[in-house]
């Protein structure tokens, strides 16, 4: 009996410690900031494209008008501010504000406010035109939601510059916080659920088992942006690609966590999503999936990578001993791992 009690007690302690370490260890906000820039850019592009036919999708005489919504969307939890916008003028003004908010999120100006407003706008627009949506909108809303939680404007942002000007400290400082980690963890877990659902749902279809599913995608003229019918000469390649797609999606939620397999899983994500982007005509969806996958790139790698591309981003302060920026830092919680002591910047 004692043995069982000790086992359960130890399990509880370790589970609690692991839970706290996973969610509440302070983390550098560099990865979150990179996701903010790219998600902001995608939201901006998405809304620029909506703008091309704003009246068609959001106007009084849209594809889904008020009379249609009264029957198709009786649920009040499917809210949308866009139903209040009666005139074209109001619609265009509101859309101008949405564009500005997306741009603010991208450049990191009043980042937290911009993230909240951009998420609200994204959900409002999604609920207004449910029939015109696809995976891009789901990912846009998901990323915008998690960007609200973390200090997405802690680095590489106008907010950062303004703060630096006030405090006279440089861009190279590490901005570690619990909420940065929390936001990244939420994106990671959400992606695991997403890929698992995507993979398991494919297992219901015979073509994903007999290896012809990717042929169906390649031979679909409406999706196609590049002629992929040459694949007809390579049936075994089609089989292989189909099986790898399912295996990759189903195993993602397991293999993405060990350090040994994580690079392999992320490298495989690139051809899969670029294939969707450039062969199936869903460039935006393929790219936003890759943006979401950035959540698994360590902040130090993000800093070094960006420093290599654009030196002004700076890779300074990437080590664990770098100072925590108190403006963005939050108090460490119980079992949240070691908190690095603040020390003077190297001159």
């Amino acid at each position: 009996m004692n043995l069982v009690h000790t086992y359960l007690s130890e399990m509880r302690q370790q589970a609690c410690a692991g839970w706290n370490r996973f969610w509440f260890t302070p983390a550098d906000a560099a990865t979150l900031a990179l996701i903010r820039i790219l998600t902001g850019a995608m939201l901006l592009y998405t809304n620029v494209v909506w703008m091309l036919e704003l009246d068609s999708f959001f106007g009084q005489q849209s594809w889904c008008d008020r009379a249609c919504a009264a029957i198709t969307q009786p649920d009040r939890s499917v809210w949308s501010v866009h139903w209040i916008l009666q005139s074209n003028g109001a619609l265009w003004c509101a859309h101008g504000v949405v564009l500005a908010l997306c741009a603010m999120l991208m450049v990191g100006f009043c980042t937290r406010t911009a993230a909240i407003a951009a998420w609200l706008a994204t959900v409002s627009m999604a609920n207004r035109v449910p029939l015109a949506l696809f995976g891009l909108d789901q990912l846009n809303a998901m990323l915008a939601m998690y960007l609200m939680i973390g200090p997405a404007g802690a680095v590489w942002s106008i907010d950062r510059r303004l703060l630096d000007r006030q405090s006279r400290c440089g861009q190279g400082r590490v901005c570690s916080s619990v909420s940065a980690n929390l936001a990244i963890r939420l994106i990671q877990v959400h992606l695991c659920v997403l890929y698992l659902a995507a993979g398991l749902s494919k297992l219901q279809g015979p073509s994903w088992w007999n290896g012809t599913a990717l042929w169906q995608a390649a031979a679909n003229l409406e999706y196609q942006s590049i002629d992929m019918t040459w694949l007809v000469h390579w049936p075994l390649l089609v089989n292989l690609a189909t099986h790898v797609t399912v295996a990759w999606e189903v195993s993602y939620c397991v293999l993405i966590w060990p350090r040994l397999t994580r690079p392999l899983v992320l490298v495989l994500a690139i051809p899969l999503h670029l294939g969707i982007a450039f062969c199936l005509g869903m460039t935006t969806f393929g790219l936003i999936m890759l943006v979401a996958n950035l959540a698994f790139i360590p902040p130090s790698l993000v800093r070094n990578g960006l420093a290599a591309i654009a030196p002004r981003f700076g890779a300074g302060g990437t080590s664990g001993a770098a100072p925590i920026d108190r403006q963005f830092a939050e108090p460490a919680r119980l079992n949240a791992g070691p908190v690095v002591p603040r020390r003077k910047r190297a001159s």
């Binding site: 499917v78 959900v123 999604a126 809303a141 997403l194 890929y195 659902a197 995507a198 599913a213």
Partner: peptide, 20 residues
């Protein structure tokens, strides 16, 4: 789930890619 626009199945190209 509906208010936060999280009510998704994520069944991309499933169960079959199929006709358009």
């Amino acid at each position: 789930l509906q208010a936060a626009y999280l009510n998704h199945g994520y069944h991309f190209f499933a169960p079959e890619p199929g006709p358009s």
